[in-house]
Every structure is written in C-alpha cells, then in structure tokens.
Simulated assay, not measured.
Amino acid sequence: MSADRPERAEATAVVPALVRDYRRLLRLFPFAYRRAHGAEMLGHLLDAAAPGQSRPARGDVVDLLRAAAREWALAPLGSTAPERRAGTGLLCVALPALLAVPAVRAGGHAASLVSQDGAPPLLSTVPMVVAWAIWALGVVALLTGAGRAGRTLVAAAAVVAALTVGALLAIGQAHAAFLETGWAVGLAAHALVVVEHARCRASEHDRRLAAITAAGMALAVVAYVLATVADAGHLGLPWWSSVASTTWSTEALVAPLMVLGLAATLWARTRQAVPLMAGVLTGIVLGGSQFFWSGSVDPSTVDLGNVLGLLALSLGAACSARWVVNRIGELAEVRARLRLDAEQAVGPGTGVVGGP
C-alpha cells in the first residue's frame, strides 16, 4: 500500500512548466476578471491536464484566447455576472433612447430626399441611413419579443455602421466618417449589450423592460423635437436638421452629462452602466463638437488619424470609468466586510451603551 503512494504522487504531479504556461495565458484576461476567476480557472485547467503533460493543449490555448478576447470586449460591462446583469439592464433602456434621436433624424432626412426631384444620392447625403434602418427593425423585434432576430439585426446594424465609416474613409470623406464614428460606437455598444443581456437573464422577453425602453425612446425623440423646433423654424430648416443652436449644442450638454455620470457612479444600482455610457457619450460628443472644440480647423484636413483618435478617446473614457467603478466597488466591499466583522465581534444583543 505504501509502495503505491510514490507512484501515484509521481503520476499526478503537475509539471511546473505547464503551470507557468497556463499562468501566462491567464494574464491575457482583464485584471478584474483574473482576480475574480483566475485561481478557479487555473485549478480546472490543471485538473484536466493529462499526467506528465508539460505544455498546454492546443484546444485549451484556442479556448483561452477566445475567452480572453470576449472578456476584453465585455470589460466595460463588468467582470462578474451580477455586474453585467446590473449594467445591461439599464443600458437596454438608455442606449435605445440615446440612439433613437439620430435614427429618427436620418429617417426624416432620407424621406425628404426621396420625395424631392433631382435630390443628391441618398447614401452620399445620409450615409448611415441603412445602418439606422436595420437598427430600427432590430429594436422593434426586441420590443415585440423576437429576441434572436432582434439581436441579429442590431449586430448587423453595428457591422454596417463600421463598414460605412470605413467606406467613407476609403472614398476620401474623412470628415463625414469622423462625424458618424461616435454613432457607430453607440450601435456597437448596443449590440454588445443586447447579446450579453440575453445571456445574463433567465427570461427571453421582459415585457416591463420593453415598455420602459419604448417609452424612453419616445420621450427622447419628443424632447429633441421640442428643444430644437423653435430654432429650426427660426432658421427655416426642417425639424430633423442639425440646428446650429448655442443653447442645445453638444458642448452645452457636457457639464450636465458629467454631473449625471458622477451621480450614477455613486449609486450602486446604476454604477455598472456608467463605463460603457461614458465611452459612447465621449465618442458622440467629441464627434459632433467641431474637432474637439476647435472650430477653426478646416474639415478638409480631417483624416484617418482623427477617426482613430476619437475611437481611442472613447475607449479610454470607458476604461477609465470602469477603473473608477471597480475601485468604488472594492471600497464598498471592504466597508461591508468591516461592518460584518464588527457585528460578529460585538455579538447579537450585546450592545451596551452606558457604563455600569
């Protein structure tokens, strides 16, 4: 009996090189996810390894690389299922309300061009109209309970938007690509949210959430029309046009958006949605703010670098906000742990206020 133990220990011993390689692969995951699940993942990988195995299996490497890419894409939504569930619940309402305004504007512009004789080509005047049309169909499908079709259409709209921005850059319309990049980021974010929301939730269709989303979209469109119709009428422009109004310009919305974001960060129920919204709003605001608030720049000087810079700033805003949200969450966990330890140390019913 005792003679078999060394043989079993040798057969089940883990090769140090295998542990090292698996740890290197796990470093590809975001830090927050690695901290929450790294030890568990390493244990499962080592338990599944064959006796004497010295290198990770090719299938494990492919699976880890795919999982790491997925986690980086989902990093703005959080590193755990509860965080992502909380974030996607609010974003499923906030993002459609935000994107409904440009979709309606593009639809109104396209309808006016179709009704005119001798109007310029639709795609050259409203380049994102196809993406917005597909997105609108996807949202309608989601609101009516056709979840799989809705998610497919929303994802297709994000792909079409990205291709549209690339096509505009390819034909030398970098200025138009720059203006549409923020909305393309918003469409991509919404596609990410609806896919992850379906994975996190047990029920396929939430009628209450669908009703709130539809109401939010309607209120956003009505608020936009009421806020700009006076300026549009004064300038003799249609309601869907981009009105040059100093009162409702994108720059004027920066301060209230920052205040709203800070307030949402402090509230636990809305905190997880802040990073992705920060990235989307950064792309939208900077994309429509005359080249980072420098109106003296000639639009003809815009190139690929401006578009890539806008994408980098949008991603940086999301990552920075996620870091802040994670630190706030850690502080909340520490306070809760200290409070629990204090209660356990005192014990139930032993709170003595005064002396003997």
Results as ranks from 00 to 15, higher is better:
A223W: 02
W267S: 07
E7V: 15
L142R: 08
Q116T: 11
A167W: 12
M41V: 09
G283H: 05
E343G: 11
L179C: 10
S294D: 15
P348R: 13
S249W: 07
A13I: 06
H197Q: 13
W72H: 15
H190M: 11
L187K: 04
G233C: 04
P51R: 09
F291W: 10
L143R: 10
H109R: 14
H205P: 08
A136W: 00
W240R: 01
G216Y: 01
V101K: 06
L219H: 13
L311S: 12
W248Y: 15
A67F: 01
S289P: 00
I284S: 01
G150H: 04
A317S: 15
A252I: 05
P120D: 04
R207H: 11
Q116W: 03
G261I: 00
S294N: 14
G351V: 13
D60M: 05
L123D: 14
A94V: 15
S294C: 08
V114F: 09
G107R: 09
V243R: 02
A69H: 08
A57Q: 15
V130G: 05
V297I: 14
V325D: 00
R207F: 07
L74P: 06
P127V: 06
I328H: 09
V195E: 13
P51C: 06
P102I: 04
A111E: 12
V225P: 00
E71N: 07
L304Y: 08
R20V: 10
S2C: 10
R66N: 06
V307T: 06
P51T: 10
G261T: 08
P256K: 06
